[in-house]
Computed example of a mutant assay.
Amino acid sequence: MIYLLAKYTLLFLLASILGFMLGYWYSRRNIEDVTESFEDMRKASARSDEAQWNKLWQQFSALPQPKETDLTSVFERLDGVQTLVSSLPKPEPVNLASVEQRLESLAETVRRIPVPEKPAAVNLAPIEKRLETLAETVSKIPHPEKPAAVDLGPVEAKLETLAETVSKIPHPEKPATVDLGPVEAKLETLAATVRLIPAPEKPAAVNLSS
């Protein structure tokens, strides 16, 4: 058993070594070494960056220098303003003695105002007794009894009988049509006769001056 384990272990080690050697040979044969190419590219990039920086600094150097601003007139005006401010008269101090005296007199007057005394306690016992007596009196008032139910049966029976009696009364017949033609003819004849009566003449004027 130990012999087999040792044999397999040696075989695995030999296979590992051979695999490593085969992989190294394959990588050296098919993979290109770019170390030198990368170094060349890095140096070329550094030279290009340096050239660009030099060009940029040359452009900055070619820019015209800014001219110094002449602030003489501004300083002169500031000096004039300072002179005017210094020549202004200083304000006189305000005398507040009269105001302070009035405030002191007002404070003294307030101190002399008498403090109102605490009002005496109000005795509400009589009112409470009267309220209790009133409550007892109200509680002793008898409640009204519920009224008895009214039997309306006889009244309803009489109303039904009256309705039946009224329904049995015969309806009056429609009266016959009256012919008023002769009466209207006589009225027209009378109206024509009245129209033929001559109107009375206007009486003569009576002289009442004599």
Rank of each mutant, 00 (worst) to 15 (best):
H171K: 10
P200T: 06
R112T: 11
S98K: 14
F12D: 13
E32D: 10
A185R: 02
A163V: 05
S48L: 05
D151K: 03
P119D: 05
L103P: 06
K158D: 07
T72I: 01
D49Y: 11
A120I: 03
V110C: 08
G181M: 09
P203T: 01
L103K: 13
R77I: 14
T189P: 02
S37F: 01
P126K: 04
V122W: 02
W53H: 12
S27G: 11
A204F: 06
K67Y: 11
L4V: 08
F60I: 15
E76K: 14
H143N: 14
I113T: 08
K43Q: 14
I127C: 06
R112W: 04
Q59P: 09
V85K: 10
L11K: 08
L18A: 15
M21W: 03
R28A: 13
S16V: 12
D33R: 01
S16R: 03
V34P: 09
L4I: 02
V85Q: 04
P144D: 00
E156N: 01
N30P: 01
L5C: 13
E188N: 09
P175N: 00
P114N: 00
P170Y: 02
E32C: 01
L131R: 13
Y24A: 13
D179L: 00
Y8C: 10
E117Q: 04
S98Q: 07
P198G: 02
Y3V: 09
A148N: 11
K174P: 08
R111E: 14
E145R: 02
L4Q: 12
N95S: 06
A157Y: 12
W57C: 03
E117D: 11
A97P: 07
E156W: 00
W53N: 07
Y26V: 06
L14E: 15
N123P: 04
I2T: 12
I31H: 03
L124F: 10
T133L: 09
S139I: 05
A121F: 00
E184K: 08
P198F: 07
S37H: 00
L152R: 03
V81F: 04
P170H: 02
F20S: 13
L131H: 04
K174T: 13
L78T: 10
R28E: 13
S98E: 12
R112H: 03
N54I: 08
